[in-house]
Simulated scan of single mutants.
Amino acid sequence: MPDYHIPPAGLPPQTQLMETRAVFTDAYAFIPGTTVRDITASALPGWDKTRLWIIARPMTGFAETFSHYLMEVAPGGGSDAPEPDTQAQGALFVTGGAGQVTIEGTAHDVGPGSYVYIPAGTAWSLRAEDTLTFHWVRKRYVPAPGLAAPEPIVTSDAEVAPTPMPDTGGVWATTRFVDPADLRHDMHVTIVTFQPGGVIPFPETHVMEHGLYVLEGKAVYRLNKDWVEVEAGDYMWLRAFCPQACYAGGPGPFRYLLYKDVNRHAALTL
């Protein structure tokens, strides 16, 4: 089973140097895992025994489509009304612990590797059995003429076979929890895997905004004009058209959870 990264929290010792790799630019933000500490945690109304780290949120002039939370729910904790915005859809990816997600009255056991998609306006709740850690990506759903809203999805990393990228010999693959041809969806949350030596062989420059959380391994990642060393627990937050590329040097697989907005016209008014 993959060893998904879980934030360490706590506080570094007083003897630690303050210099880190954290940076915020006009094209991207890089948030190393070492910044996920007790004093940067938040709380949410309606959530019991829960703390979280908000590592991305819509910001005018930067990335504007989504938020990304790192959630930690103690045993017995959770929420009976997690989402206050009826227009918001959500994707959950569990990295540790055990619990239940109930969607429209049907309970689903979740654990490491579980993926849950929750359509906008859906009644759901969550309770932790063991300390439950998971990612929660939120985006306001954009309906499309002639297309119904998508249904809930409950699956896992282990149940979805990665799709190799063309002409890569399998060293670059994507675990797609949603069929890319299903245009009802306006966001994709996937897992990208590079085997040692795998690369993105050109600087991707595109309209999709990105959030990339490193689940496992290490690599060097091109962000705009910079090459940045990244490892498990690091987060890259990219605005639209920020050039990006990757080289996975090993020794093991490099995997990250990826958000992107898809399948909709570009809005012409704000």
Rank of each mutant, 00 (worst) to 15 (best):
V199S: 12
F202I: 14
F241Q: 15
K225D: 15
P251E: 01
M208A: 13
T190N: 10
L215Q: 04
G197H: 00
C246H: 02
D226Y: 05
K218G: 07
Y247I: 15
P243E: 01
L238N: 12
T190H: 12
T193A: 03
K225V: 15
K225P: 08
C242G: 05
V220C: 13
K225Q: 12
P196Y: 06
Y221I: 10
E209C: 03
P203N: 14
P253G: 04
A219P: 02
V228F: 00
V192C: 11
T193F: 04
E204D: 13
F194C: 09
R255G: 02
F254T: 02
R255C: 04
Y247S: 14
G197I: 00
D234R: 07
E231P: 03
V199E: 08
W237D: 11
Y235A: 09
V230F: 01
F202W: 09
L215W: 03
G233N: 03
A219S: 07
E216H: 07
R239E: 13
M208D: 09
H206Q: 08
V220Y: 07
E229P: 10
T190V: 13
C246L: 11
Y235V: 06
Y221F: 14
M208Q: 12
G198C: 01
V228C: 02
P253W: 10
A245E: 07
F194R: 07
G233I: 12
T193P: 00
E216K: 06
G233A: 05
V199A: 10
A219Q: 02
P253F: 06
P203V: 08
A248T: 11
V230C: 03
T205G: 06
A219W: 01
F202N: 05
H206D: 06
